[in-house]
Design a protein around this nucleic acid. Structure first.
Lengths: 211, 211
DNA sequence: TGTACATCAGTGAACGCGCGTTCACTGATGTAC
DNA sequence: TGTACATCAGTGAACGCGCGTTCACTGATGTAC
């Protein structure tokens, strides 16, 4: 890549970072202004247009970036889950780390999930679905590894992701001294759902045997 | 109440309705303008100040209204659950009806849950917690009515409410022909979690017996 | 390597617009006697 | 009941401000020969 292109790329990253930062300070995407982003990124308002068509375009790029991060988390999960480290413990750990390292990203994800822009919403929905698929995949693998029965892995994954997202919001909103409690409740919820999955699978197995 | 006070009250309701309507058309609260609300409510912008201190004040009132509606749903639930109608079926039905009747309210609730105003967020959190408590209560009662064991009713209620809220968002965002699928998946998720609650309780009972 | 030209990321001035908020007001409703 | 006065919900004009977007530009970087 040419020097010029590299510099441009860097400015683009600066703008995206600026947007994410501004966004986190109790503002939703709809109330964000182009001029404010430019100010934080320390560029002239007009320069914005060299990188994005408009604010919505920037938002979609942000959503894509979040998607890439989530896929990275999935890869981490694949690496860390093993015979000695169970799926629930490993993935809740990874999730907690993500919340701590990228709170801006996560807040953006959750705000714009039901935010103003249909395009951004669509992108977020797409990546959430992909994420759920990956989790479902993990669940199936973990079950076969432990020789446990499993039923409706995708429904299970969906429930788990819903719970995780919601808990994430609560976690970031909470005062530091409440975060541990929220985290523990979160894990309990996940375990409850997993138990439900196993119970359903056993129930179905027995039904099948009886026939 | 005097005639004058009654008229004022009615204008106030008009403003709140206008805000909720404007809000639903793909806008978040942060991007809503006082003048826009006034326009929709068909009053002069200045008249707004006779009823609310500012937009945030209006938002808190809206959140309180949502809280009242949720408590009304709980009362409906208490009426409809009985020996012949099980808790899950009755409450998912009520929830579905709510989504259809008050989509504006529900969207407001979900957007502002992680929205820009700390005051509005606090009010929404308060009412969500109250709602979760009520659901936990129902779960305990239902379990004792059916003579089933139960463990961690509040964790269970929390998981259920989390799932319901996110399913609600998806439901309203989906095209009509996808809504039925989402609703069915939602019910499956709830059942999975409930099964998990029962499984945990049985597990604990057996453990207690063995000692 | 040196030169002449092309590209294009970033800019500053300028525009018209909708915004929140203030102010002094109007006139219907309410109250005191 | 009638009258004189008080209240106060709703208003229209006006303000200064930040906004998104356009435009013609500059000058460093890239390219062709």
């Amino acid at each position: 890549m040419s020097l010029r292109a590299e510099q441009k790329e860097q400015t683009k990253r600066t703008i995206m970072k600026a947007a994410l930062t501004s966004l986190s300070a109790d503002r939703s995407y709809g109330s964000l202004s182009l001029r404010e982003v430019a100010r934080v990124a320390q560029i002239a308002p007009t320069s914005f247009y060299r990188h994005f068509k408009d604010l919505e375009d920037l938002g979609v790029s942000l959503a894509q970036e979040v998607g890439e991060t989530l896929m990275e988390l999935v890869r981490q999960g694949a690496r860390e889950v093993g015979p000695e480290r169970d799926l629930i413990r490993a993935s809740t750990d990874i999730f907690l780390r993500y919340l701590r390292e990228e709170p801006h990203q996560f807040r953006f994800l959750m705000r714009e999930k039901s935010g103003s822009s249909p395009k951004i919403r669509a992108e977020i929905k797409r990546l959430t679905e992909m994420f759920i698929d990956q989790i479902a995949d993990f669940i199936v693998k973990e079950a076969s590894r432990r020789a446990r029965p499993i039923a409706e892995p995708r429904i299970l994954a969906q429930a788990i992701v819903n719970i995780a997202l919601y808990a994430g919001v609560e976690f970031l909103d909470a005062e530091p001294w409440d975060q541990e409690v929220i985290y523990q409740q979160f894990i309990k919820q996940i375990m409850l759902v997993s138990l439900g999955g196993e119970a359903l699978a056993r129930h179905r197995e027995q039904k099948a045997l009886r026939q």
